[in-house]
Simulated assay, not measured.
Amino acid sequence: MYTLTVEQEDDWWEVEALYDTCFAPGREALSSYRLRHGVDPVPSLSMVARDADGIIGGAIRYWPVRIGGETALLLGPVAVHPTRQGEGLGGLLIRGSLEQAKAEGWERVLLVGDAPYYRRFGFSRLTGVIMPPPTNPDRVLGIALRSDAWVGIIGDVERFVIDV
């Protein structure tokens, strides 16, 4: 059994170690990381899954981005420790965090990932939404948390910058 909680400041190193374990070295060179550079993740949606002993088995983070002047969430990374894979932990993290995002009023979420895996959570290919290169457009997926939230949203995905 796992408990989902919001990632705390003290979890940062443990979560980073999990991401290093699950993803290839140089993961921060991916195009999605350019969108995250200098932008804080959404604290209430950055979650960890702990087992009964308090050990982190998985983690997920979300980042605000802009597309054509509209705000969206960029899901990722989501990771499950290799010894915990196949237990439904990824699904628990994704479903739990999407429910929280919807409850907070977020309207749309995108990610770069495998459609066969993410389809089960309601994600589908986004056309007209362009991630920084080199990103395969077939892997740019989205889900609407509000009806028609992706209608008319097209353009480049850009770093979230607060207008002043």
Rank of each mutant, 00 (worst) to 15 (best):
W150T: 08
Q100C: 12
L45S: 11
R159D: 02
A17L: 07
E107S: 15
Q85R: 15
P116H: 13
A79C: 12
Q85I: 13
R34P: 07
L98K: 07
R34S: 15
M1N: 06
I67S: 00
G57H: 15
G122D: 07
F121W: 10
V15F: 08
V42C: 10
E87Y: 05
R146T: 15
L93W: 13
V78Q: 04
R108A: 03
G26V: 09
R125D: 09
A149H: 00
P116D: 13
A101Y: 10
E7R: 01
F160K: 00
G122E: 06
T3G: 12
E70H: 02
I154T: 15
V42S: 06
R36I: 05
P116I: 10
G54I: 07
I67G: 01
L45T: 11
T5Q: 14
V161W: 01
E107H: 15
P77Y: 04
E87S: 11
L35S: 03
V48H: 11
D138K: 11
R84W: 15
D138G: 12
A49K: 07
Y118M: 07
V80S: 09
L110M: 14
L145N: 05
R108Y: 01
L111K: 07
R120C: 10
L18R: 06
I67A: 00
V6Q: 15
G38F: 02
A72Y: 03
V6E: 15
G152V: 03
W13M: 11
R84P: 08
G68D: 07
R84C: 13
C22K: 04
S44G: 03
V140C: 05
D10Q: 14
R108C: 00
W13Y: 11
Y117W: 13
G142L: 10
G54E: 05
R139A: 14
L89P: 02
I60Y: 12
I130P: 06
Y33E: 11
G26W: 07
E104D: 14
E70I: 00
I60W: 13
A24H: 06
V65Q: 04
V65N: 03
V65K: 04
Y33I: 01
D20M: 01
L35A: 03
Y117F: 14
R95C: 11
W63M: 02
N136R: 07
R50A: 07
G58F: 07
F121I: 09
W63R: 00
P132Q: 04
G90P: 10
G128K: 01
E14K: 05
A52C: 05
L4P: 08
Y118V: 06
R108F: 06
S31F: 08
T5S: 14
V157C: 08
L110F: 13
V39R: 04
R66G: 00
R139G: 04
P64L: 09
V65S: 05
V140H: 01
G113D: 10
A115P: 14
F160C: 01
L93K: 09
R159V: 09
I94M: 13
L75W: 07
E87L: 12
P82I: 12
R66P: 01
L110V: 12
M131P: 02
E70F: 00
L30H: 03
V15I: 13
A59S: 14
W63Q: 00
L110A: 10
L111Q: 12
V161M: 05
G155P: 10
D114S: 11
L30F: 14
D10M: 08
Y2N: 08
R84G: 08
R119K: 14
I154L: 02
P134R: 02
T5L: 15
W13G: 08
I143P: 05
I94G: 08
V39L: 08
T71I: 09
R108N: 00
